[in-house]
Amino acid sequence: MEEKRSNSAGGVGGMALFALIGFVGALVVGWGIFPKMLYSQKTQPIRFSHTVHSQLGIECEQCHHLGPDGRFAGLPSTESCAECHGEETGDTSANGKEIDKFVKDYVKTGRQVPWLVYQYQPDNVFFSHAAHKGFECTKCHLDVAKTDTPPPYYENRLSGYSKDTMKMWECERCHASMGTSNACFVCHK
């Protein structure tokens, strides 16, 4: 009876200990391992160097501009890139090889580069760059302007979206703080 009780008491202590282990373990898994498991890491199809281009004096707006109809041009088309990179260079440096890869795979085949866009929103979201042009780009976008190698792209294995795709609550919070409408059709289509 006594033994049983002591067992029981030790059991309670053990239970608490294991509960603590479970608690801490869950925190470790939840904060440490789970996020790594949830996302697969992808690299851009072409290692585009923003630094090289900006050092050449190319303004950001030359490629990422608002059109006269108010549409944001987004990323330049293969044709725009081909205005400079139309032919293979034969250059054996790392950058040269990357340029030749681009020319061979995309310019010559007439395909568009399947860039992995860090912020792409679902089809049912309309985002107006024209309405947000007062903000710094980096308020929402990764600051890629000074990167030589584009940062890795993390794709959510479950939802298929980028890790950096802004969530609806983030949009709503900013809209609310700015006094902008949060009506459905302000953003949805």
């Binding site: 108010g70 024209a130 289509k189």
Partner: peptide, 28 residues
């Protein structure tokens, strides 16, 4: 956007054209 089955849809007065018209006005 494309709708899967099982949801309700209806005319939106081509709402997307309004957002575009507003953007065009902003740029102009």
């Amino acid at each position: 956007s494309v709708r899967p089955r099982g949801v309700v849809e209806k005319c939106t007065f081509c709402h997307h054209r309004w957002t575009q018209a507003k953007d065009a006005a902003r740029v102009a």
